[in-house]
Simulated scan of single mutants.
Amino acid sequence: MRDAVMSALSTVNDPELHRDLVSLGMIERAEVEGGHARIKVNLTTPACPLKGQIEREVREAVLNVPGVEAVSVEFGATVRPAAQPALPGVKHVVLVGSGKGGVGKSSVAVNLAASLAADGARVGLLDADVYGPSVAHMMGQGAAKVTANAERKMLPIEAHGVRFLSMANLSPAGQALVWRGPMLHSAIGQFVKDAAWGQLDYLVVDLPPGTGDVQLSLTQNVQVTGAVIVTTPQDVALIDAARAIDMFRKASVPVLGVVENMSYFVAPDTGHTYDIFGRGGSRKLGDYPLLGEVPLETGVREDADQGRPAVLAHPDSAAAVALRGVARTLAGQISVRAMHQDLASLPDQLTVV
């Protein structure tokens, strides 16, 4: 009966990769005992955005096998690394950037990292905004200090299941850093290469606004999987977001998608929706995936001020739901790219959508 179950599973496609689970090697276990089929599917990311669909289709396919009366579906996950790993032990580096400040880029980066970690991924977060670091405060670790191990490598601080580094944990509180480009370049190099990040599925990097030294240092010294652009809907933000996209294009960094932050506001007393900054403006940036539209909510700001990512503090809020959706869609985009590389030699080429 196991052969019949495997045959049934070969009719179930991964919705993003458009190939069946069997040929993709995603069926880790298929056992049948007394009419009860137990299936374990090894996903390409623990933050798979379509896990529910896969589970439903696996159940339907296996229940059609004669003699099968019940189906249990279990999931595991193995994040496939990029063709050229970014850093030792780090499978993917994802840059979160914007063309200007004030669009909520750091808040998005923190919540992306926390959401991926909550789904079971091993996640690091690098605050590369050296002049205006805010990640430590948003993670509730503003007073913590970075230490070193026996090999004199910096040990990331851990909070909310995420390992992170920020200049805020290395310099005295409130002290301004007055550095020229070479010092900045050296600091970024130490953050990425002289830190004991350990084994990570994703290293999320919160970039400073603009298109300056930090962006150049990272793209020249680290193999980056891709970038996420954060913008608000109004034209003044979109103009600068387009410049950030152009910078990544010139640096040969794929843009994985766009996050439209503060996309709309729902009045808590009336439920009426207001497009304070306009809405849907991110679609003007070109043919890039829209990873999500995140509403403007006071709770996101309050959670950040209290050092708690909104996706963990208030997971049922509209903003948290949108941010979790962004994280899972992003993880799916990364999986598609990694699997495309793995399947490049197969006869039917994978079409990235």
Rank of each mutant, 00 (worst) to 15 (best):
V135P: 11
A176H: 08
G212C: 02
Q215K: 03
A237Q: 07
A150W: 07
D206L: 07
G189W: 02
K193F: 07
V204I: 15
N221A: 15
V222H: 07
D201V: 08
Q223T: 13
A187I: 04
W197S: 12
E158S: 14
A227P: 03
A242C: 03
M183N: 10
M154S: 09
L216I: 14
A150I: 10
T219G: 11
L155A: 09
L184I: 15
I229L: 14
A196H: 06
I245V: 12
V205P: 13
A168T: 02
V205M: 13
L165G: 06
I188P: 03
A150P: 03
K145W: 09
V162I: 09
G140D: 12
A173H: 12
G226R: 03
A159F: 05
L216F: 00
P133N: 09
K193G: 06
T147C: 06
M154T: 00
A242F: 03
A159Y: 00
V146Q: 09
E158H: 12
I229Y: 03
G132E: 10
D201H: 07
P209N: 06
D240F: 08
F164C: 13
A227S: 14
L200N: 04
M247P: 10
L165P: 05
P209W: 07
A159H: 01
L155H: 04
D235R: 08
N149C: 12
S186P: 06
G226C: 06
L177R: 08
S166P: 08
Q223D: 13
L207P: 11
A195W: 02
A168I: 00
V224D: 05
S134N: 15
Q234F: 04
H160M: 13
N169H: 05
A242Y: 03
A168H: 06
A227V: 01
T232G: 10
D235W: 05
A244Q: 01
L216H: 02
V214W: 00
L203A: 08
V222K: 06
V162H: 10
G226V: 01
V222W: 00
D194R: 15
A150N: 14
E151P: 07
V192K: 05
L216C: 08
T211Y: 04
M154Y: 02
A136N: 05
R180M: 05
G161C: 13
D213Q: 02
G161S: 13
T211D: 01
V205I: 15
G226T: 00
P209A: 12
L207V: 01
G174Q: 14
K193I: 04
V204M: 15
V204Q: 06
V224S: 07
R180A: 08
A242K: 11
S186E: 14
D201K: 07
I245E: 01
D213M: 03
L216Q: 05
I239Y: 00
I245P: 11
T219P: 11
D206F: 01
I245N: 07
M139G: 08
V146E: 11
P233M: 08
Q190G: 11
L200I: 03
M183Q: 14
